[in-house]
Design a protein around this nucleic acid. Structure first.
Length: 267
DNA sequence: AACATCAGCAACCGCTCCTCA
DNA sequence: ATGAGGAGCGGTTGCTGATGT
């Protein structure tokens, strides 16, 4: 006996999400928090599969997502984490909390794979690559400033939608509600980074389980003070860790190191 | 200007993993 | 211990806009 489908496929809508659907989903998640995806289509009236709702949230609507324009530092991290972990996009994404696994996967498939193939064909060594990327990173400025917060995303979404389309009944119902929510979020967002505090619940995490690990790891580091953890048990720094450490020293990427050290301990 | 091709990305599919009764 | 159901992940597809002819 095969598994039943995750949802009733008969009335399921597929294809691109409309702004109206986005707003319904965002509004619902703001009320109830992410999770329990199976109940989302039922409770919202969205004619979407639960998986589709989850995907839309994690890849597009979730707060704190940075879109487009991968920095040289991010690019370098992806390249080397891919070399270290393979195509474990979710794991790689856990080191780049502003990026989704889907984004990273797409970026890898469309840009980096070609780049690396080209690079290999020119018989350049990986270490040479790193040197180049590192120097490029030194010139990169304040990578945090470039990301568009999701509240901004939602705000833009709302603006675009209000301009572009006549109000449906649902839209009219939600407009005020979501706008109020967005304003609240904007106020809150100005006070603190979601990655530092996690304001409106766990929705800031791409991968809750992995994020919990990371949070734990970060916490451990904080408790350790100097961040060297178990000391004797820590193996020598790998090539990539050294590189990241260098990046840390030059670019303030400490949040990257602690999960990586945990990974190193596991390997 | 019209058509063909390419590149990028959002979204889907199917499988695996995890949780819980 | 086991099986069902939900969630997560990675591979792939297909749509759309950009670019070339």
């Amino acid at each position: 006996m095969g598994r039943p489908p995750c949802c009733d496929k008969i009335r399921i809508k597929k294809g691109p999400w409309t702004p109206e659907e986005d707003i319904i989903l965002v509004s619902y998640i703001q009320e109830h928090g992410p999770g329990n995806w199976r109940s989302v289509p039922t409770n919202t009236g969205l004619l979407r599969c639960s998986k589709s709702c989850r995907l839309r949230w994690t890849n597009y609507l979730r707060p704190g997502i940075k879109r487009g324009n991968f920095t040289p530092h991010e690019e370098g991290m992806i390249i080397h984490l891919q070399a270290l972990l393979g195509n474990k996009w979710a794991s790689i994404a856990s080191y780049l909390p502003q990026r989704t696994d889907n984004d990273i996967k797409n970026y890898w498939n469309t840009h980096l794979k070609k780049k690396l193939n080209k690079s290999e064909s020119e018989e350049r060594s990986i270490s040479e690559n790193i040197t180049l990327q590192t120097s490029a990173t030194r010139n990169a400025i304040n990578h945090r400033s470039t990301y568009a917060s999701s509240t901004e995303n939602i705000s833009r979404l709302l603006e675009g939608w209000m301009r572009a389309s006549p109000k449906s009944s649902t839209a009219s119902f939600l407009e005020q509600k979501v706008q109020n929510r967005t304003n609240d979020l904007m106020d809150h967002h100005n006070d603190e980074s979601p990655y530092e505090q996690g304001s409106w619940d766990q929705g800031f995490h791409v991968h809750p389980k992995k994020s919990e690990e990371n949070v734990k790891c970060d916490h451990d580091v904080q408790e350790d003070g100097d961040g060297d953890g178990d000391g004797d048990a820590t193996p020598p720094l790998t090539f990539i860790e050294k590189w990241l450490l260098e990046e840390t020293n030059t670019g303030g990427q400490m949040e990257v190191m602690s999960p990586l050290m945990e990974l190193s301990n596991m390997l």
